[in-house]
Design a protein around this nucleic acid. Structure first.
Lengths: 243, 243
DNA sequence: CGAACTATTGACGTCGCTCAACTAGTGTGG
DNA sequence: CCACACTAGTTGAGCGACGTCAATAGTTCG
């Protein structure tokens, strides 16, 4: 895949105009590519000396495990997303990351990123923007869990993933392919898998959205947005520090 | 108050050894002091050109308002905490901030922070550490909402605030003064105020913790920690980038 | 073809919400 | 100085959203 068409480039380019030089520096981030199998734990909570990755293909998720064995997924990562960016920059990883599907990811060295920052402020801007967007998403998930009911949460989550996929050229307003199981959805939304199943049925029967056989189809995009209180602003605010 | 004893200095000094020069730069952050009254909205969601503050005295909270009028508090700020740090660095504020008590805060200019970064990497380290800790707390709140019941959430939250207050020299293992109302607690924990009341009664009657008349008292600190699944690690990991 | 995973559905229990009433403290103005 | 309003806290009765337990299929993969 050409660097021009890589998911990360697409995503960053959507918000900051990148020069040839920027693209060049960006391409140097991709030291080596690694493949992981579904279920593999790529980053472990509390462990130092972590690697960071850029997800090229496939899905992953970040989560924390509780004492009672329960799991809360903090965020889901799709192609173009960083994995463990903060854990490398800040030398601390406060959660684990696991491959959802078979996936390909580029290994990224902290030094390369920091060097890149020095060489291109514009690129640094773009990457900080990505990091800040990730944080805004976590905040939005928090609101989701605290103040929305199961149906609204599900609708909101499916819309968010849809919007993010569209940014990197996967999926559109009609829908997208989604490898998450109902167990994943349960751990994202703070529900049980059984209830997730019922929620999906309700949304389908209400003509809002259908999630079946690994495919999410928006039956009524506008009404679903309205129903879920989904406001795309937190995903596509302007780039940071751009004067 | 001398810079040596300011809450922010205490907090940062607990994790990174700061030199005389660092303290000097730090003191220059405090351009002017402002006073806010309880309930005043200091930072507004979605608004550009925001100021950042360092909280010197009093409490604040960051929150998002939903379409139906509901509110979710994302985090509570105590003396020594930054307010709107991200919104200045990234030029975007994804939530609002409100004064809980009458409070005093120093105005901070983005330029001063960035200059400080250039002058002292050690100080930059300390501040990035603080920002990363804030993010770890938001993740922990997310887990709290998604996977713990009302009693556990309350216990966890009261313990977290206790640990943070101890860092800046307010409160100890026995307890602390807390100006939050049961309505605040409800908006933090994703509950209703009525249920918060019952939860506090349960915790009190179980001999775990008492919250009455603006005072939190740990009746059985160890058992409360065990009960709430509270793990202090996410609050006091090592400083970032310190080689 | 069996094992393991995922999806589906029903019966029933419970945690936390809603509605409502009441108390106590605090401040404000006639 | 009292009347009134307003806020914070407390408690009960009833209900609904979501969880638990259990049974059944369909799918995938070795």
């Amino acid at each position: 895949m050409s660097i021009l068409k890589s998911p990360l480039t697409r995503k960053l380019a959507a918000f900051v105009a990148l020069s040839e030089t920027d693209l060049d520096i960006l391409s140097r981030f991709h030291r080596s590519k690694k493949t992981f199998l579904p279920g593999h734990e790529m980053i472990t909570e509390g462990q130092a000396k972590q690697t960071a990755f850029i997800l090229a293909e496939g899905w992953a998720c970040s989560y924390k495990i509780l004492a009672d064995g329960g799991r809360q997924i903090v965020d889901v990562q799709i192609p173009g997303d960083f994995l463990g960016l903060r854990s490398v920059l800040f030398r601390t990883s406060d959660h684990s990351v696991e491959a959802v599907t078979r996936l390909e990811a580029s290994v990224v060295l902290a030094a390369d990123i920091l060097d890149g920052f020095g060489q291109s402020p514009r690129l640094a801007t773009a990457i900080l923007w990505a990091a800040s967007r990730d944080e805004a998403m976590v905040v939005e998930h928090l609101v989701n869990l605290g103040r929305r009911n199961a149906e609204e949460r599900m609708g909101h989550f499916l819309l968010e993933i849809g919007a993010r996929l569209k940014l990197v050229g996967l999926g559109d307003k009609l829908g997208y392919d989604c490898p998450l199981t109902q167990y994943h959805l349960a751990d994202v939304l703070g529900l049980t898998a059984v209830h997730v199943n019922r929620v999906l049925r309700n949304l389908r029967e209400d003509g809002l959205v259908t999630f079946q056989k690994g495919r999410v189809t928006f039956d009524d995009f506008e009404r679903l947005k309205e129903f879920s209180g989904f406001d795309i602003d937190y995903l596509d605010h302007d780039g940071p520090l751009l004067h």
